[in-house]
Design a protein around this nucleic acid. Structure first.
Length: 424
RNA sequence: GGAGAGAUGGCAGAGCGGUUGAAUGCACUGGUCUUGAAAACCAGCGUACCUUAAUAGGGUACCCAGGGUUCGAAUCCCUGUCUCUCCGCCA
């Protein structure tokens, strides 16, 4: 949610910033709502004050045994007016909320203005793609020759966009998640969490998935949502709390499956396990002091990069343009890993600073020693990394001519000391 | 799944339907006292919104949530959520 104060005092500049993201705010409608809200609210509260005052005097008069009828008549009149005024105010506030809940965060000034993914800007490149002197296989072929990746069985069990992993490939998948968690907890200062995979609607709203993106999530019969990312439960841990300033920053990580409907992505990334209804991810979340969120985003991105560096896989970092960012984000870096089988870079992580956007929805605040009033925290989240896509990248980057897959040095201890997955 | 109890300020814990935003204790903050500390004593101590130049003052709302009764609701009624106890079931 945006700062309502900002919408009031700086409406047109805010609307311009939103337009950079492709969101058209109807400023005229908003101004009208705001104007009527103001007058109706003032009126309502004045009426309420009158009613309370008279009601109190009724109590006092009764206690003294005086006649109360004239007071009752007075208050009856006010009652009707008050009722009408209250309903009007409620309707206005609901309409305003309808706008604010559907309005995305503002882009940071450092974010390139652009329309879609074509306007994203490369920030840096790490590593060089290996020179392979044999014909490359993609992960689907590699999965096939190693009998570790079985799309057909998954489709039989569940339908499209599911994957079945078996044997050493499944173990490698597990090893990757373990390795990532260990790195973030032992070297990057994150606390590990095991979280619910289903959350209620309020939680989904807190981090911005609802109400606008209801179609993207799986919902259960009892109105719970399967989490699309661990960001949702982790970030909402601070919902409705006031944190001591000295407890900031809070750094959390969790390995969870992620569930996505992928509605509207028919025909996109259908080959292999790129875009799935269910995939594993190790997520990082930070709750920070507003002054430090810029720096925290750089750090968190570096934490995600550290995984790829340890795995010695080439990647690049891009900053998303204003039009390509997610709803809650103010600034986002995507990490794209080199995928030799496709001869291209593929998104494997997304790290975002959500500033106070989620915090305002969740009412997540902190109190400092200097400022008495609780202030909103800033929230950040980043993948560190998407496990399934990392698996693909490892398979393809570490493939050998005979179809076997070498195991990256840092993962060997997680693979019972094995150094290679031999083809079946 | 069955039966019962409960949800009040950071915590604990009162609260006949009428001056209760809410007693009291603890914690916390400031002060007095003290060489310093403790103790004691005094004072302060919620959040959001509106109004305002104002972190001054004034107003409104909030005692789990949402409805209702009433001139007036923390207090009465209904629904929901959550917690606890007992029984059953279960990894």
């Amino acid at each position: 949610m945006l700062d309502p104060q900002m919408l009031r005092t700086d409406l047109h500049r805010t609307a311009e910033k939103l337009a950079q993201r492709g969101y058209q705010l109807d400023t005229e409608q908003w101004q009208q709502l705001e104007d009527s809200r103001k007058s109706v609210q003032v009126e309502t509260e004045a009426l309420q004050n009158q009613r309370t005052t008279i009601s109190k005097s009724i109590g006092q008069a009764k206690a003294k045994g005086e006649d109360v009828q004239s007071l009752l008549d007075q208050v009856a009149q006010i009652g009707e007016q008050l009722e009408a005024s209250k309903n009007q105010l409620k309707a206005i506030l609901e309409e305003m909320e309808g706008v604010t809940l559907y309005t995305p965060n503002l882009a940071d000034d450092s974010v390139p203005v652009g329309k879609d993914e074509n306007d994203n800007v490369e920030v840096r490149v790490w590593g060089k793609p290996k020179d392979f002197d044999f014909e490359l296989k993609d992960h689907v072929e590699l999965g096939h020759v190693n009998q570790g990746l079985d799309a057909e069985s998954a489709a039989n069990l569940s339908g499209s966009r599911f994957t079945l992993l078996t044997g050493e490939v499944a173990q490698l998948h597990r090893a990757l998640a373990q390795f990532m968690l260990d790195m973030h907890t032992q070297q990057h200062g994150y606390k590990e969490f095991y979280v619910p995979y289903m959350v209620n609607a309020q939680t989904m709203q807190g981090s911005g998935q609802l109400p606008k993106f209801a179609d993207d999530a799986f919902i259960t019969e009892d109105d719970r949502y399967l989490i699309p990312t661990a960001e949702v439960p982790l970030t909402n841990l601070v919902a409705d709390t006031i944190i001591d300033e000295q407890d900031l920053p809070i750094k959390m990580t969790a390995h969870t499956p992620c569930f996505r409907r992928e509605a509207g992505s028919y025909g996109k990334d259908t080959k292999g396990m790129i875009r799935q209804h269910q995939f594993d991810k190790v997520e990082m979340v930070q709750i920070v002091h507003p002054e430090h969120s810029d720096k925290a985003l750089e750090e968190m991105t570096a934490h995600a990069e550290a995984i790829l560096q340890a795995l010695e896989m080439p990647y690049r970092v891009i900053v998303l343009c204003s039009g390509d960012m997610g709803f809650s984000a103010s600034k986002t870096y995507d990490l794209e890993v080199w995928v030799p089988g496709e001869n291209t870079y593929r998104e494997i992580s997304s790290c975002s600073n959500c500033t106070d956007f989620q915090a305002r929805r969740m009412q997540a605040r902190f109190r400092s020693v200097e400022v008495k009033k609780p202030q909103l925290v800033h929230t950040l989240n980043g993948s560190g990394l998407a496990v399934g896509r990392t698996l693909i990248a490892v398979m393809e980057n570490y493939q050998n001519e005979d179809g076997s897959i070498s195991i990256p040095a840092v993962l060997q201890s997680y693979m019972n000391g094995k150094t290679v997955i031999n083809k079946a």
